[in-house]
């Protein structure tokens, strides 16, 4: 044990970020956690090309999250007079603490993360990973298509940048859903099971959190419930080609992630992802 880790204290101020910061963190967390999950496949993909593909997609998503975190950090630092959730490194004074993309990704605890539950679920087999990525990528596609018109110029710019990448993710994951659904009995069974496991986590995407609602009037956020039709149509078309049954829509849906109430899985992700920064604060390589 070195001195730094002995002295390490987490000092937290009540998390009461502004709505805009919360919204940006929600988008950043979605991309980071999805990207981190996909990166777990690096070196384990079913074949080299697909290992590279899924690692590339993970890289795109982590890159998107960096853009969001950098912007959130910038706003948090400008609005310093506002009480902002800050987690401090050892020896750091609350008044001097500066938010950075790293402090936001590595020093917040599970209840401060605002990602939807879907992205934090374990990868399972290849079919489950593919289905999760597909459901999420189609959502991101329509989300970013709307966010391009945000009155917040930086959010619009990040959306414009990300949209091109997401278009590839949708295409790649759709092809895999079709390949597995319309493949062998075994692959059909696996992708059907994946869909059954994941379906109750899709409703959260279209249920706005308070911070999303309160930013609507200024046209900073978008109306997520309006994305549902496009999402359903796209998913339905791909499922049809994949010979998959489109599940019952009006079932009870899991929620909570957008407001910091997560499944137990997120804690394990953070334990792995944040370990180094917590054990060796500010370490770099």
């Amino acid at each position: 044990m070195n001195d730094a880790s002995n002295n390490f204290k987490l000092l937290k101020v009540t998390p009461s970020e502004g709505f805009r910061e919360a919204f940006i963190l929600h988008l950043a967390d979605n991309s980071l956690i999805m990207g981190h999950r996909l990166s777990e496949w690096t070196g384990h993909g079913p074949m080299l090309e697909q290992d590279i593909a899924i690692s590339n997609i993970a890289l795109d998503l982590i890159g998107q999250s960096r853009n969001f975190y950098q912007y959130a950090a910038q706003l948090i630092n400008i609005n310093n007079e506002r009480e902002v959730s800050k987690t401090l490194y050892p020896g750091e004074d609350l008044n001097e603490a500066v938010a950075t993309e790293d402090s936001l990704a590595y020093l917040r605890d599970a209840n401060e993360f605002k990602n939807i539950l879907l992205v934090e679920l374990p990868n399972g087999d290849w079919a489950k990973t593919i289905m999760k990525l597909f459901l999420f990528s189609v959502y991101q596609l329509y989300f970013y298509q709307k966010l391009i018109d945000s009155s917040d110029k930086q959010l619009a710019a990040i959306a414009e940048k990300s949209l091109k990448e997401v278009t590839y993710h949708v295409r790649w994951s759709s092809e895999w859903v079709i390949r597995l659904g319309d493949g062998t009995d075994e692959s059909h069974k696996r992708i059907s099971n994946a869909l059954e496991d994941l379906w109750s986590f899709t409703g959260e995407m279209f249920q706005p959190a308070d911070y999303e609602n309160s930013l609507l009037q200024k046209r900073i956020s978008i109306t997520v419930s309006e994305l549902k039709n496009d999402w359903q149509n796209k998913v339905r078309n791909v499922f049809e080609e994949a010979t998959l049954m489109y599940p019952e829509e009006n079932i009870w849906m899991q929620t909570g992630g957008k407001n910091g109430t997560h499944t137990e899985h997120l804690g394990y992700i953070l334990a792995e992802m944040q370990f180094l920064q917590r054990a060796y604060p500010r370490c770099e390589w």
């Binding site: 090309e49 697909q50 590279i52 593909a53 590339n56 997609i57 795109d60 590839y168 295409r171 790649w172």
Partner: peptide
């Protein structure tokens, strides 16, 4: 062969 190659900007 694959939509994703050795770097983000390339396909195989």
């Amino acid at each position: 062969i694959s939509q994703f190659g050795s770097t983000s900007c390339k396909a195989l």
